[in-house]
């Protein structure tokens, strides 16, 4: 293992799609209980980074270690065992339309772990309680929920099997500022209660300031700055300054035709 205490250790991660290089040598570690937030513009490879760690995308080069064990190129039972350590909150929730809320939350408890439906339902309702939802939503279908409730249910599903590491893909995108803040508070409270490590990707600076211990900025396929959340406003890094202030002018060039 590269770092004796790292929960996740990523070294030299590279990924291209056709001729487009998305990741060009990304290195970072996440310590136990730490919250790392990766920021960066759209299309800079934030989601690809998370999907490589989760094994949803196979990297071209580089190593990924979880608790010191290799996490690339795994199949079958080894992949399933590794997945048991992960929880993932997808950008759109990715709740299963054909299942009720409680069946979504208890999905991992019923299928891979073989819990009875009664036990699984009770566990699902406990987890819904952790994200501020009552038993009354348990029998609804995802299509009957608002965007904020969907994110909460997806968060409850992500933590239901008590993972070691939880990933958040744009947890507040598409939500109004108040609901977004509620989700941020829930992420912080869940992390404190369960002691999990988290890796989040977001554009939302309010979210970054609330949930991050450490921030990494991805640009041009590489991490151009890493530092603690408190240092971000005085980073002295022109990429970070442009991003957090939302300026069109700066080292991050956008393909926009000027009038």
């Amino acid at each position: 293992m590269t770092d004796g205490t790292a929960k996740i250790s990523v070294r030299g991660l590279k990924k291209s799609f056709g001729r487009k290089t998305v990741l060009d040598g990304v290195d970072f570690d996440v310590a136990p209980g730490e919250s790392l937030v990766i920021i960066g513009g759209s299309g800079t490879g934030k989601s690809v980074t998370i999907k490589c760690i989760l094994g949803l995308i196979e990297p071209d080069e580089g190593t990924i270690e979880i608790d010191g064990d290799n996490a690339t190129g795994l199949g079958g039972g080894d992949r399933d065992a590794l997945m048991a350590k992960f929880g993932m909150l997808f950008q759109g929730g990715a709740l299963f339309d054909s299942l009720t809320v409680w069946e979504n939350v208890a999905f991992r408890l019923i299928r891979p772990r073989g819990a009875s439906r009664r036990e699984a339902r009770e566990a699902a309702i406990d987890n819904l309680g952790m994200v501020g939802l009552g038993e009354d939503v348990a029998d609804l279908h995802p299509a009957e929920l608002s965007g904020g409730m969907m994110k909460r249910v997806a968060l409850a599903r992500a933590i239901a099997a008590r993972p070691d590491i939880v990933f958040f893909d744009e947890p507040t995108t598409g939500l109004d500022p108040i609901t977004a803040d509620v989700i941020n508070d829930l992420i912080v409270s869940v992390r404190e209660k369960l002691g999990v490590s988290t890796v989040s990707i977001t554009h939302d600076m309010a979210s970054v300031r609330k949930i991050a211990d450490r921030v990494a900025m991805l640009h041009g396929g590489r991490l151009v700055w890493t530092g603690s959340a408190g240092e971000i406003d005085a980073s002295g890094n022109p990429f970070v300054d442009q991003f957090i202030n939302g300026h069109a002018d700066g080292p991050i060039a956008m393909d926009v035709r000027r009038p």
Partner: peptide, 15 residues
């Protein structure tokens, strides 16, 4: 399910 990432979600739920 593919375009709404539900298939990826299945994989992350060890299914």
């Amino acid at each position: 399910m593919r375009v709404t990432e539900q298939i990826d979600a299945l994989t992350t739920l060890s299914t």
